[in-house]
Design a binder for these strands. Structure first.
Lengths: 387, 387
DNA sequence: CTGAAAGCGCTTACAG
DNA sequence: CTGAAAGCGCTTACAG
């Protein structure tokens, strides 16, 4: 149903069949070739069936086979049937690169992920994979480190993919910026880039983290701290900002805010940041962490120091990855709507392919607060964090 | 360095440059075209630079440009320089599908993953991604559920990928079996398939789980239980078998072995399995879980029932995913060598492309026992599990 | 060392 | 409704 990809998309799955011996009446491709022509290298078997072979068997032109394949309605029903039969008996499979060369569409969408092993990303990735395949595309995946961003941008230029979805947008990313300047078809998901107009899908980080702050205050917390994410990323900045704004005027926040700029949003950084908070002065009675994984690290560090959760300290995270629901953490957090995010991102990518000149779209989705045992359970769970 | 992919591989990264206006002397493609020819649809911009344009600028034939691009040594140095200059000023980028159509190589390796959100797979996936990109290929990723296996096999037939690496091999998988029967270039990693000859990389699950059993016994455990993985998969079967064999003759195992056949190797199954064990009779004093995630579930279930770890019950897992090292679990487990597994798998894939007829290769790597706080720390960590 | 030319396997106007 | 033909942009013998 998505725009821009219908009949010119990737091949439709044809009925497969043992393609090895298509019967004696199937013209062997070799037989038609002039003797001088060398055999092309083949990866396996000796099959290499083209639509011309199918046409010969069906007694029609190759063009007609192509029309049947693409679902054209310019084909007489009886002809179509004959072609379908030939397709079936030969076990013909389209050659994607030939199709791509003609149509200009690869049927492939790229995805760049930076920290595949941060459990948030596999969850997002799974949602993206589902959305991409649902739209009848395939997905090329890059690791954002290891030059993945640059290669993803190259892949667009090389026409190896139709479009690329970036799940991480660091301001420092040259390849991304260049891709955007050249107006390559790119979508940002989960993060946005300051001052850059491009298609993006984000969630309302300000509202989400503000909801956490209010929840802490409403719960009677008095000395509240925060562990920030990677400074400079839109998610980290917004979540810290939203949290501070939720605390504003309450006098509960103080200057305890610790940002983990160093490396990433990892468990280890959560441990480190918690210990850093402890060094400062008063022990906080509630800590907001800019993502769940940081919270896990901080919680384990707190327990290692003998603090009770939530008796001594409340913890809240962000993302609601599956582990947040596990008994060991049972973490109050903000749930991001991954499926809608992924679907919208893929939609945007396809829309832009269909209409390259359209104005950049920005979508911002709402998240919800999920209350669990890492905070006193005074409120019911799943409160919308809509501002 | 890997075989089968050198100059016919994916494009080499050419120096990029603002490709939009290559200067007045660069022949505009449009100008050369007969008026009647319709404009091809273009995804963005109006650039569409071919090697022919580069040739014109360099004053050579298109074939010579192609030779320079492919690193042929059949080019005079001064000619090469002229072409390189033209390449530079035009910002030419190869068209991958045209190259693929001629060369028969896509430069893409497929990967099928079944449970992307089980943290083991992102770790394996990251290793595969690194290995694939290191060999100058790109990676198409499929979710094994959602028809991913079937589509991956189709992708080989459609020549959209050169080869596919399956990280999950269920005996029930039709698409996989058919692909193997048709001798499509496929590699199995982490699991093998009974009675099927094909390239595969596994680890020695028998030795690994036997090491856990011995470790339990040596630690004086008396009533030992196990939580199995998805029955029918080679990893689950081997781990259970190895564990039993390690217990054989000690009288410590009993019939408590609980296999979670139902759904998957998930946290929830770990919880369920632990509770099932409790119902049976004596509480075990050590439980081996067929992967780490099952162990996390079982440990949380145990704690919820008030059991101490390791005071009341020891736990051991399998895989050594990152979470196993987190404070909340601190899990003794068997570490799988992901990087070598991934590298060997990619190597096998490339070797088979280079030499389709070669005999199937099987590689079996050694894992090691990593001792942590979920068991009494009587032995030093990182003991090789080599039988 | 270089160019002209064939051809990879499709899609798509164009002309019936 | 159908076929003949052009052409997508490369690679690679072949003939100098």
């Amino acid at each position: 149903m998505l725009a821009g990809q219908k009949d010119e998309g990737r091949c439709r799955r044809l009925p497969k069949r043992q393609a090895r011996d298509g019967g004696p009446d199937r013209p062997r491709r070799d037989a038609k070739k002039a003797d001088a022509v060398p055999e092309p290298r083949m990866a396996f078997g000796d099959r290499r069936l083209t639509s011309r072979d199918v046409a010969a068997l069906a007694g029609v032109s190759q063009a007609t086979v192509s029309r049947v394949l693409s679902g054209s309605d310019l084909v007489k029903e009886s002809t179509r049937q004959a072609v379908l039969r030939a397709l079936e008996t030969t076990g013909y499979v389209v050659n994607v690169s030939a199709r791509t060369m003609r149509s200009g569409r690869t049927g492939v969408i790229g995805v760049v992920v930076t920290h595949m092993t941060n459990p948030f990303y596999p969850e997002l990735l799974e949602a993206l994979s589902n959305a991409i395949h649902a739209s009848n595309h395939r997905m090329i995946l890059w690791d954002g480190r290891q030059d993945g961003e640059a290669d993803a941008a190259s892949a667009i230029r090389e026409r190896a993919v139709d479009s690329v979805i970036f799940t991480t947008a660091t301001p420092a990313s040259r390849p991304l910026r260049e891709a955007l300047e050249q107006e390559l078809p790119v979508v940002l998901v989960n993060r946005s880039l300051r001052g850059v107009r491009c298609d993006s899908v984000t969630t309302d980080n300000l509202a989400g983290s503000r909801a956490v702050a209010r929840y802490f205050i409403d719960g009677g917390r008095n000395y509240v701290a925060a562990i920030g994410g990677l400074r400079g990323t839109s998610t980290a900045d917004e979540r810290l900002q939203g949290f501070k704004s939720g605390l504003a005027g309450t006098g509960k926040g103080g200057a305890t805010l610790v940002a983990t700029t160093s490396v990433d949003w990892s468990y280890e950084e959560g441990v480190r940041a918690f210990n850093e908070i402890l060094e400062s002065r008063t022990v906080p009675d509630a800590i907001f962490c800019a993502n769940d994984v940081l919270a896990f690290g901080a919680m384990d560090a707190a327990r290692a120091r003998g603090f009770g959760i939530p008796d001594d300290i409340w913890f809240a995270g962000y993302d609601d990855i599956a582990i947040a629901g596990w008994g060991a953490y049972d973490l109050t957090t903000i749930r991001q709507p991954l499926r809608p995010m992924a679907e919208q991102a893929v939609n945007m990518a396809l829309h832009r392919l269909a209409e390259p000149g359209r104005a950049p779209q920005r979508s911002r989705l709402t998240s919800e607060l999920v209350v669990r045992g890492s905070t006193a359970n005074y409120a019911s769970s799943a409160v919308s964090a809509a501002s």
